[in-house]
Amino acid sequence: MKILEIEKLNMTFSSRGLNGVERVHVLRDVDLDIDEGEILAIVGESGCGKTTLGRLITGLISPTGGTIKFLGKDLSKTSNAEKKLYRKSVQFIQQDSYAALNPVKTIYQSLYAPIKANNKKLSREEIDAMIGDNMEMVGLTPVELYLNKYPHQLSGGQRQRVLIARVLSLKPKIIVADEPISMIDVSLRLSILKLLASLNQKLNITIVYITHDLSTVKYVVGEGRMAVMYLGEIVEFGKAKDVIVHPKHPYTQALILSVPIPDPVIERSKPEVRLKSMEIPDIRNRSDGCAFADRCLYADEECKTWKLANTNSDEHIVCCKNLREVPSYDAGETNE
């Protein structure tokens, strides 16, 4: 069952500057379906619109065009009660765990408030039991050790776990995790990713994992799917395993080639990344057609006006007009 249907989603930010109102068209015609209980990764470089998409999904901002349907209902047409349920069901985990917690409140206070606000009838004992369960779920045990601490007394990994426990207390259907590990030490990153994957398995929560770090995607999504974004568009979409090992879009190929592999023998024998320009162009100067046309070696004049009709399907989708001319690329078989 589709839990979220995103259709032709557009987002334009306006700001008033010296030269009048300036508009930046950040997301352009994004189509995306998310199944209930799946783990989906959204991957892209800075400025590609992945966080904007995450904020739209969680309802923190409203789109300037297109629709988001949650369990079949168009969000822009829902009643207030339905909207409240949606807000509760879709939760966001931010990148900076320190900024996301109130520094003058203890962990217990931070975990207590959202439960109380949403379940006014619960007694203190019941809430305490829920907090305990959630803390155990995210691996913060013994619970008593953490409850009376302040955010600065915990490590980055522990704070990220607190955020996950706080999110769980609302019994969400979808968790959007925006770069949850980018500020955590390498040796601790993996355990957070495994925790996210285990929540999906144990509680059947749909997880949207937003990241710029391609090498971590597989550890979260497993058999799930991933979308690669570039300058506000989805350029490639498919099973994460296929996209990572056999990327088809010229941009995805460049991206995957650039990810360092922790083995000097393999890393130093990789081919060079070939692009017309290494700089990501300003999103305001994006061509009307393929957003990648300006940097792509295989692009021709038509690419700059070419428009992909629909990227919405279950298979491996690649938004490229000249796909036949792009040589295939094999990132190497995984040892499985």
Binding site: K194, T216, Y219, V259, N335
Partner: peptide, 13 residues
């Protein structure tokens, strides 16, 4: 260290 070539079982924190 995660790698695009390693399977999830090969990675240990």
């Amino acid at each position: 260290t995660p790698s695009i070539l390693k399977s999830p079982e090969e990675i240990q924190p």
